[in-house]
Nucleic acid binder design. Structure first.
Lengths: 221, 221
DNA sequence: CCATGAAATGAATCTAGATTCATTCGCAGT
DNA sequence: ACTGCGAATGAATCTAGATTCATTTCATGG
């Protein structure tokens, strides 16, 4: 806001960004390879090719680092999901389907981070945890909106918007949570397609089934 | 098998059982009150009113203790779910509904333990983890069976039995996983009823809807 | 070529707990 | 009352990491 006049300062900022990104990437690699618990300041430093002390120049502590990893995915959700939904047009059914698919893709790309969301309670500050909950809820907002729109237009028959929205999110999260099980059965593609069909079947009333047969899967009607 | 001749030995066994149960209960209380991470050997000892050292007489270490907590719920699942399903009769739809409800009840009763299932990876031995996965899968077996039966009889239209079975389990787990969200919105009762309806809507094809209107919730058809 | 300060290092320090074990307690059998 | 033994204690020890900070390296401007 007031520093962008200094080119040297800008350069510093840029380098800092880069370092911080480098660390987050190393953390991602580490989690992907050896699981989220394997991230110690030491192992992270080694993986990133820097010294332990340096990490503290870019993150206040381990908690901030983990928080950053999580905020990263939530951010991706917040960007990718609305984008995909908007590209899908107006129809709430197609919008929801697009949202689910986008979620699956981001999740596949950052499985470890999604898992962290369910685990990192210990190492996270209460404020951090709170922030995550808030963000998760706002992430769901577009989905919730689609449900409401579909409900109004009669495309969906909804029992409880809040519950069913969260259910949809969970179905996608399960790709990360139960990856050891799904991994050898489905590709992300298949997974996304099936979960979409399943979620929609729960929402679309009989009379609308024919119209969306393509999304509802094999048997169709 | 060969010690049950000694009454003194039997008494010892009984006391040991009791202690071990006492410890598990204390752990449960602690987790329920302050979250799963709050269980340290110290805090557990204090909560149970014993000394730290004593815990090691009954459990090999913290990992064994946590494993025991988890095996406890999985055991309850293995007992309660089939029981409820059998009491529900032959119809796969009613069997599934009964299973879901039973799951919700056990989960509500041991929320902390379900959450542990998703978290304790670090502190658990690989064998322990493996055992948990196996048990979780066998827990699902009755549900899977109901899906298959319903599929055969035409009551269910299933896209993929494995996936949809796990989905049902997840929907119930979410009572524990997202309790901070659901807590102030629904009672377990409401939650169980709605999740049942939602799960069934995804499974029951249009032509069967009328028959199970009661389970499918408000609007019914 | 030097002075300056930011960037980076990593050994030393701290901390939170888990685990051990020498000691004490309490009771059953004599 | 006394002996022996399993039960119980909890202070001392160990461990795994997280965090700090005195020191070194590097780049930049003069």
């Amino acid at each position: 806001m007031s520093i962008d006049t200094d080119p040297a300062e800008a350069a510093r900022q840029a380098r800092a960004e880069q370092r911080s990104a480098q660390l987050l990437e190393a953390a991602a690699r580490l989690m992907d390879r050896d699981g989220p618990e394997s991230v110690s300041m030491q192992s992270l430093a080694t993986e990133a090719g820097v010294s332990v002390g340096l990490i503290y120049r870019y993150f206040g502590g381990k908690d901030e680092l983990l928080l950053a990893v999580i905020l990263n995915v939530l951010d991706a959700f917040g960007t990718e999901v609305p984008k995909a939904m908007d590209e899908a047009g107006e129809d709430p059914v197609h919008r929801l389907a697009a949202g689910v698919r986008a979620l699956c893709e981001v999740i596949d790309d950052q499985r470890y981070a999604v898992v962290l969301t369910y685990r990192a309670t210990k190492q996270l500050s209460p404020e951090g945890r709170h922030r995550i909950m808030e963000l998760e809820l706002s992430t769901m907002e577009p989905l919730r909106e689609a449900l409401r729109a579909g409900q109004k237009s009669g495309a969906f028959e909804v029992i409880d918007v809040d519950l069913e929205t969260y259910n949809v999110l969970l179905l996608t999260h399960s790709w990360a949570l139960k990856h050891w099980y799904y991994e050898r059965r489905y590709t992300v593609e298949e997974f996304a397609t099936m979960q979409t069909a399943i979620a929609l079947r729960a929402l679309i009333p009989p009379r609308q089934r024919r119209k969306y047969a393509a999304l509802l899967g094999n048997a169709g009607a």
